[in-house]
Computed example of a mutant assay.
Amino acid sequence: MTVYGVGLGPGDPGLVTVRGKDILEEASVVYSPGRLSRSVATEHVSEERVGDLDFPMTRDEDELREAWKAAAAEIAPRAREETVAFVTLGDPNVYSTFGHLRRTLDAFYPDVDVETVPGVSAVTAFTTALGIEVASGTSLTLQEAAGEATPTGPDRMVLFKVTDAPATHERLVAAGYDVVYGRRLYMEQGETLVTDDPEELADRDYYTLAYAEKEGVETTAATAAFDVETEVEQ
């Protein structure tokens, strides 16, 4: 059978795709790597069909490898006989825990089929939440801003995992950016917040992103504009 990596979207159960919901209903067991993904999954499947996997919050590579090997060892035997789903917030191939599982299964259990079911990602959903249009021809860079990292350079950036908003804001403003933040966008757990004031985000939260745009950068969006006076005369 198959292991499906199912993207649950940014946190709202209503943003799970039709294909994702079909796989969840078909799967004999739905594995969840965390509390938030579990809470979304259980809106579509019963608690009894959800299996939890333990992944330590650590940067120790050896410990992480052992955790993924243990997860693969749990999942592979079932996947040989049944349809299995592994759920993750967002999209399985964008900043996702599923990538670790897929690589581990490929290395140790190459006979197990693995497929991904795309999910609505914050990469795209943030535009609606923050009221931003990424027009045709606009360049946009996706970066991770966890820890002390605050990349600068491109005209427009989306920064994920902004765990220190005040420090990130200070560096971005010094580099000439206007910045707006979104926290827990589309999530039912915790407070959703959109703000340009980093002090409102002083407490650390992994689920915070920033949209940074260079001051004065020009955007010429494609439009269906007409010369009104000429049209009237005709």
Rank of each mutant, 00 (worst) to 15 (best):
V3Q: 08
G7C: 11
G7Q: 09
L8K: 05
G9Q: 07
G11P: 04
D12K: 02
V18E: 05
K21I: 10
D22A: 15
D22R: 15
L24C: 06
E25I: 00
E26S: 13
V30Y: 02
Y31M: 10
Y31E: 07
Y31K: 11
P33T: 10
R35F: 06
S39L: 14
S39M: 12
E43L: 01
E48F: 05
R49P: 02
G51D: 00
G51V: 04
L53M: 15
F55N: 03
R59N: 15
E61V: 13
D62Y: 06
R65T: 08
E66W: 11
W68Y: 15
A70M: 08
A70Q: 13
A72W: 08
E74H: 13
I75D: 10
R78V: 14
V87N: 06
P92H: 10
V94E: 03
Y95F: 13
Y95D: 01
F98P: 04
G99S: 15
L101Y: 11
L105A: 10
L105T: 00
A107C: 01
Y109M: 09
D111A: 04
V112N: 02
D113R: 14
V114D: 02
E115Q: 15
T116Q: 09
V117K: 07
A122D: 07
V123W: 05
T127C: 14
T127P: 00
T128D: 13
G131I: 01
G131A: 07
V134K: 03
S136Q: 10
T138C: 11
T141Y: 03
E144M: 12
E144F: 03
A146D: 01
A149W: 04
D155S: 11
L159V: 02
F160H: 06
D164T: 02
D164Q: 11
D164C: 08
A165W: 03
A167N: 09
T168N: 11
E170W: 03
L172I: 03
L172H: 03
L172V: 01
A175C: 09
Y177G: 03
V180P: 02
G182L: 13
R183G: 08
R183T: 08
M187Q: 14
G190C: 09
E191H: 04
L193M: 13
V194N: 04
D197K: 11
E199V: 09
L209F: 12
A212F: 09
E215P: 09
T220A: 15
T223H: 14
T223V: 12
E229P: 07
E229C: 06
T230D: 11
E233A: 15
